Simulated assay, not measured.
Amino acid sequence: MTDIPILYEDGEALVVDKPAGLPIDRPRKGGPALDDHLEALKLGFQRAPTPVHRLDQDTSGCLLLARNPKALKRFNKAFEDRLVEKEYVGLVAGTLGEDEGTIELSLSKISSAEKGWRMIAAKKGKPAITHWRKLGEKDGVTLVEFRPVTGRTHQIRIHALAGLGHALVGDPVYGKPDPRAKRTMLHATKLVMHRENKTPIEAVSPLPADFGGFGFA
């Protein structure tokens, strides 16, 4: 048995509810990773499933896995062709003047010896688009739904900071520490992938308990 909840399952796909703090790849310094769970996620199949896309270590929620190489190739193409609907919810460390909008800010990677690598908004970077909608507000923190069109590294984190004017709560790279947050407060709440001649892959992950500490249940 696997201790990672399964949100969707068929002959070629799994969607699991990745817990916050679990990296997809093994960290250089060692420690737990999704790899530790792939054998259990065979669920009677000969092959271990393969992650199709990435979620940051802190990000919880819907993660798609392919159960065979042919499915992996098709799913990768669907992501490349932007045929996958993804929804996230995040806590933004501030209040917003508008209720919804679209952020179009290109992103680029920079690095330095002091701070390591990070992403920044840059005109010469790779195009990135995120639709957003305000879901609620409490004590100076805003619950926001993010619907990324593109899938750039740290896209939502940078678009929150540079596009909305506030970093995500608990973001150790782009924000400020918050004693109530043990991680960057971002959750992949929904994933939908349409397939030819098959029912869509569709999964929804409930809001994690740590969002409740900010008054959002």
Rank of each mutant, 00 (worst) to 15 (best):
M1R: 09
M1V: 15
L7S: 01
Y8T: 12
E9D: 14
A13M: 01
L14H: 10
V16F: 00
K18G: 05
P19L: 05
L22A: 06
P23L: 06
D25Q: 15
D35H: 13
D35Y: 10
D36K: 10
D36R: 10
H37K: 09
R47F: 04
P49E: 03
R54A: 01
L55H: 02
T59V: 08
G61M: 00
L63V: 01
A66Y: 12
A66K: 04
R67H: 02
R67S: 00
N68V: 06
N68E: 10
K70A: 09
L72W: 12
K73L: 10
F75L: 05
N76F: 14
N76L: 14
N76G: 12
K77G: 13
A78F: 12
E80G: 03
E80S: 10
D81E: 14
V84E: 12
E87D: 11
A93R: 15
A93E: 15
L96Y: 14
E98Q: 15
D99R: 12
I103Q: 00
E104M: 07
L107V: 09
S108Y: 08
K109D: 11
I110G: 06
S112A: 05
G116L: 03
G116K: 04
R118D: 05
M119D: 02
A121D: 04
A121L: 04
A121V: 10
A122I: 00
K123M: 02
K126H: 06
P127N: 04
P127Q: 09
A128V: 02
R133I: 03
K134Q: 13
K138D: 09
K138Y: 01
G140N: 03
V141N: 13
V144I: 07
E145H: 07
E145S: 12
R147M: 13
V149G: 10
G151C: 05
R157L: 01
R157H: 02
H159M: 09
H159D: 06
A160T: 09
A160Q: 14
H166Y: 15
L168G: 06
G170H: 07
V173W: 08
V173F: 11
V173N: 02
K176H: 13
P177C: 07
D178P: 13
P179V: 10
P179A: 11
R183S: 08
R183E: 07
T184G: 05
T184Y: 06
M185W: 11
L186C: 08
A188S: 13
A188R: 11
M193T: 04
H194W: 15
H194R: 11
H194F: 14
R195S: 05
N197H: 15
K198E: 08
P200T: 09
P200G: 08
E202A: 02
V204K: 12
V204A: 07
S205Y: 10
P208C: 12
F211D: 00
G212K: 08
G215C: 15
